[in-house]
């Protein structure tokens, strides 16, 4: 047992070292001095109050999308449709805000209703992916991908069609909402404690749900072996559907936060890749919910900090994505190698 722990640690550390080495080589190939580049990333992420603020703003939706996909992963489901679910959350929030913005409802209530609508929108869209799998036999990967395209098409239709700015047809999005409909932020910042608190709260609920409840245990049982779970009396398809709905609700909340707290309007690319980034983070933490917060924080820091690489060393803006993907790939490779090693020994 003790040996197994050391083997685990050795493989995980080895994977991280390999990832670091590969990134260093990449930086060298791109003509950037590696150590100064790493220092620049750190400085870019933590060097000023402003960058820390941006980091926290980025962290919040990433926590939600990661927490969401962890639930579906726990149920053995590859919810690739997470991007579309986030977009649908944003669409529902925008719809609710547009509906209520001219009424006499207090702005705070309008925001709350908008966020609730986003949660419902995300859940419904995820539920559709779940229903396609459960009742239609459509693999959730293909169903999710298809629904991503549909949600993108719907967003584009709304932005260029019924919700367009007067006389304008542009990817720049819909007319920004009045400032009274923006999530309140800390003075002189763009950081909303509401979005941060909601995200952390959601993550805590998911950790407790997955680690400390019968629901979590049954969900994992469905994920590990649905046939056995069914024989043990777990209603498997209902649990799968619940996993989709819960994931969609969390991801829809992320979409709602993008509309009310970040962009203040609907954009065609409102999900900004958070869904796929959440998938990467959840794979990196090996589906352990308790590690989501620090690893998502790390990813957010790399995202924000690596902007400095472009500023200082003129590296392409896609470099941080390459670094993050490389990290995940090598860690997954390390995990595969570890399992192979343990099987042999």
């Amino acid at each position: 047992m003790k040996k197994k722990i050391w083997v685990n640690i050795a493989f995980q550390v080895g994977a991280l070292v390999l990832a670091l080495l590969s990134t260093t080589l990449l930086l060298l190939a791109a003509g950037a001095p590696p150590f100064q580049a790493y220092a620049a990333i750190l400085k870019g992420a933590f060097g000023s109050a402003g960058s820390l603020e941006t980091l926290l703003i980025t962290w919040s939706p990433l926590l939600l999308t990661t927490a969401g996909v962890l639930i579906t992963f726990s149920a053995g489901l590859w919810n690739i449709g997470v991007e579309g679910q986030m977009a649908m959350g944003a669409i529902f929030t925008t719809w609710m805000l547009r509906l209520l913005q001219e009424t006499s409802l207090p702005p705070a209530l309008t925001i709350v209703l908008g966020i609730l609508a986003g949660i419902v929108g995300g859940a419904l869209w995820a539920g559709l992916a779940g229903a396609l799998k459960t009742f239609g036999g459509v693999n959730e990967i293909f169903g999710g991908l298809g629904l991503n395209f549909v949600s993108t098409a719907l967003t584009i239709y709304l932005v260029f069609g019924p919700w367009k700015r007067p006389g304008v047809g542009s990817m720049s999005g819909t007319e920004p909402f009045d400032r009274s409909l923006w999530l309140p932020t800390l003075p002189d910042t763009e950081l909303s404690l509401w979005s941060l608190t909601l995200s952390l709260l959601a993550l805590v609920i998911i950790i407790v749900l997955l680690r400390g409840t019968h629901f979590g245990l049954r969900l994992k049982a469905v994920g590990k072996n649905p046939k056995s779970a069914f024989l043990m009396g777990v209603p498997t398809w209902q649990y799968s559907m619940l996993a989709f709905l819960l994931c969609g609700a969390l991801v829809g909340l992320a979409g709602a936060i993008q509309v009310t707290g970040v962009y203040h309007r609907l954009l065609p690319n409102i999900s900004s890749g958070y869904g796929f980034l959440g998938l990467l983070v959840s794979m990196l933490v090996n589906y352990q919910a308790v590690w989501v917060a620090p690893v998502a924080f790390f990813f957010a820091a790399v995202n924000v900090g690596s902007i400095q690489l472009q500023l200082m060393y003129k590296l392409d803006s896609s470099f941080s994505g390459v670094m993050q993907s490389l990290l995940v790939l090598l860690v997954l490779l390390g995990e595969g190698a570890r399992q192979r090693f343990l099987r042999k020994h």
């Binding site: 941006t54 703003i57 980025t58 720049s172 970040v262 962009y263 065609p268 900004s272 902007i307 803006s317």
Partner: peptide, 22 residues
């Protein structure tokens, strides 16, 4: 640009802040 995947979740004004920080 709005929603650019190069800067996940970072708005244009926040990027301007980064320029100022630099």
């Amino acid at each position: 640009y709005s929603g650019s995947p190069a800067y996940t979740g970072t708005t244009t004004s926040q990027l301007a802040e980064q320029l100022v920080a630099q």
